[in-house]
């Protein structure tokens, strides 16, 4: 086997290994943890195309091909056109392809847990409160309790089916907070322990969702506290739950936070689209 064929085989394997990742994640139903929904089909098609490209070149690795161009000319530039040649005259370093393409992908596929650790959730803002003026500024003065009730579906028990994102971003604006305050609501998300400094009486857990725009790298974690008047639920961290309670607001260190009081929760199946895009 000559050097060019060897390089061709290594490049093919590198391309196939990259293509295998999105196909694996898609077929295992994990792609939603990595990418927002609009990228799912692109990632799958791209992965399949990489595998096809890699396999095609692997099958033709030993084949010597000319460029199919007309080489008839009458000047001498120092090399023989009787041979067959590639257009690019440089050769790739197979060690670089192995070390930088194949090995990192294999290691990361082995090490990933397909979700953020608790430390990363915290770092991505699980216990923080940010404001998003634009979400409600688009409503201006027309946004009222009547409008909220008109556009929000209700459960048979009379709880409004709110998105965790809209409740999270309602905090901070006095007018908007008044509209939501006291509203019986039902939310869906994942349960996690509350930050100890925010939970001195040990009556709270937190509901969170990961919000991504493109991929997990740009994700933000939005959390809303759940206050229980009875004992805390015995559910494991990161369990998907439905939470019912009344919307309330509190002021901590000069910043408003939304939370659900008098909560009841029950475990539920993860939704099809786990990572909501921002409104």
């Amino acid at each position: 086997m000559n050097k060019a064929t060897f390089n061709q085989i290594i490049s093919s394997l590198a391309t196939i290994s990259w293509g295998g990742v999105p196909v694996y994640l898609y077929t295992r139903g994990l792609i939603g943890e990595y990418l927002s929904e609009s990228f799912h089909v692109i990632a799958l098609s791209g992965g399949l195309a990489m595998i096809v490209l890699g396999l095609f070149n692997l099958l033709h690795a030993r084949r010597q091909v000319g460029c199919g161009h007309d080489h008839s000319h009458e000047h001498d530039h120092g090399h023989d056109h009787g041979h067959e040649h590639e257009h690019d005259h440089h050769e790739q370093n197979p060690v670089a392809a192995i070390c930088l393409m194949i090995i990192p992908v294999m290691l990361c596929t082995g090490f990933t847990k397909h979700e953020y650790s608790k430390e990363a959730l915290r770092w991505k803002g699980l216990y923080k409160q940010r404001t998003l003026k634009s979400l409600y500024s688009t409503y201006n003065t027309e946004f009222t309790r009547e409008l909220l009730e008109k556009r929000t579906p209700k459960t048979s028990e009379g709880n409004f089916l709110l998105q965790l994102t809209e409740l999270y971003w309602s905090a901070g604006d006095e007018k908007i907070m008044k509209i939501y305050d006291g509203l019986p609501a039902q939310l869906e998300g994942r349960l996690i322990e509350e930050e100890p400094t925010l939970n001195p009486d040990n009556t709270r857990k937190r509901l969170y969702r990961v919000v991504m725009t493109c991929c997990a790298a740009d994700a933000q974690v939005l959390g809303v506290p759940l206050e229980f008047s009875t004992s805390l639920p015995a559910l494991a961290d990161k369990t998907w739950i439905t939470a019912r309670g009344k919307v309330a607001f509190e002021l901590i260190d000069g910043q408003h936070f939304a939370y659900l009081s008098d909560c009841e929760v029950e475990a539920t199946e993860p939704p099809e689209t786990q990572n909501r895009r921002r409104p």
Binding site: W18, V21, P22, L25, I31, E33, Y34, L35, F39, I42, A43, S45, G46, G47, A49, M50, L53, P104, V105, L107, C108, T109, G110, F111, T112, K113, H114, E115, Y116, S117, K118, E119, A120, C214, C215, A216, A217
Partner: peptide, 28 residues
Amino acid sequence: LDTWLPDFSFLFLSILVEGAPFILLGTI
């Protein structure tokens, strides 16, 4: 090994699977 490497791997793969299809398109 418990948290940093899995989180790094998770992020690395998410950017890889997002960007690689577009690079492939360009290279084809």
